[in-house]
Amino acid sequence: MAGLKTIIVLSFILAIGFLLVILSSALFKNYLTLLVVATYVIAPIPNWICGKAQNQDDFMDSGTSSIVELGRFMTGFLVVMGVALPAVFAHCDLIRIEAMVMSIIGGLLIYGTIISFTMFFHEQEEF
C-alpha cells in the first residue's frame, strides 16, 4: 500500500527532473531543450484517446485490440523522441553537450516517476 511518503518522494524526484530540464535551457541560454517538455505533455494523449476508443465489452474479451496497440506505439514513439531530441540537437551543434545530458537525465527522471506512480497507485480489479 502506497502512502504519503511515496507521494512525497515521487513528487521530489519529479521536481528534480523538471528542474534539470529547465536548467538545461536557462544555464546555456538556448531554449530548444524546452521542446522536450512538449513531448511530456503530448505522450500520454494517444494512450488515453485509444483507450477510450476501445470496445468495452465485458462478455467478449478477445485480448488487446489494434487501436490500443496503436496508442501504445504512438506513446512509445513520443517517449523515445523526448530522449532522442536533445541528442539530435547536440549532434547538430544547436545545444551544448552539457545541456543534452541535463535534459536527458531530467527526462528519464520524469518518465521514471510517472511509471513508478502508476505502479504504486494502480488499483487491482476484483471480480
Rank of each mutant, 00 (worst) to 15 (best):
residue 1 M to R: 15
residue 60 M to P: 08
residue 42 I to P: 06
residue 124 Q to F: 10
residue 126 E to S: 14
residue 82 G to S: 04
residue 52 K to W: 01
residue 36 V to D: 00
residue 95 I to H: 01
residue 114 I to D: 10
residue 1 M to C: 10
residue 111 Y to Q: 08
residue 14 L to M: 09
residue 31 Y to C: 04
residue 122 H to N: 07
residue 94 L to D: 08
residue 57 D to I: 03
residue 19 L to V: 02
residue 68 V to F: 12
residue 6 T to W: 08
residue 40 Y to M: 04
residue 30 N to K: 03
residue 24 S to M: 02
residue 43 A to S: 09
residue 46 P to A: 03
residue 41 V to A: 05
residue 18 F to K: 00
residue 74 M to N: 07
residue 19 L to N: 06
residue 54 Q to M: 08
residue 84 A to Q: 05
residue 4 L to G: 02
residue 53 A to Y: 05
residue 54 Q to R: 10
residue 3 G to D: 04
residue 99 A to K: 02
residue 1 M to Y: 07
residue 22 I to Q: 04
residue 15 A to S: 15
residue 76 G to K: 10
residue 83 V to I: 15
residue 90 A to V: 12
residue 7 I to G: 11
residue 52 K to N: 07
residue 70 L to R: 13
residue 112 G to M: 04
residue 58 D to H: 15
residue 106 G to T: 09
residue 23 L to R: 12
residue 92 C to N: 12
residue 104 I to E: 10
residue 100 M to C: 14
residue 5 K to R: 12
residue 87 A to Y: 02
residue 95 I to N: 04
residue 48 W to E: 08
residue 69 E to N: 14
residue 11 S to V: 05
residue 8 I to K: 15
residue 66 S to F: 10
residue 83 V to R: 00
residue 14 L to I: 14
residue 8 I to Y: 15
residue 49 I to D: 07
residue 108 L to W: 06
residue 110 I to H: 03
residue 90 A to T: 13
residue 56 Q to N: 04
residue 98 E to T: 01
residue 60 M to E: 12
residue 71 G to F: 01
residue 117 F to D: 05
residue 108 L to Y: 03
residue 36 V to W: 00
residue 101 V to T: 13
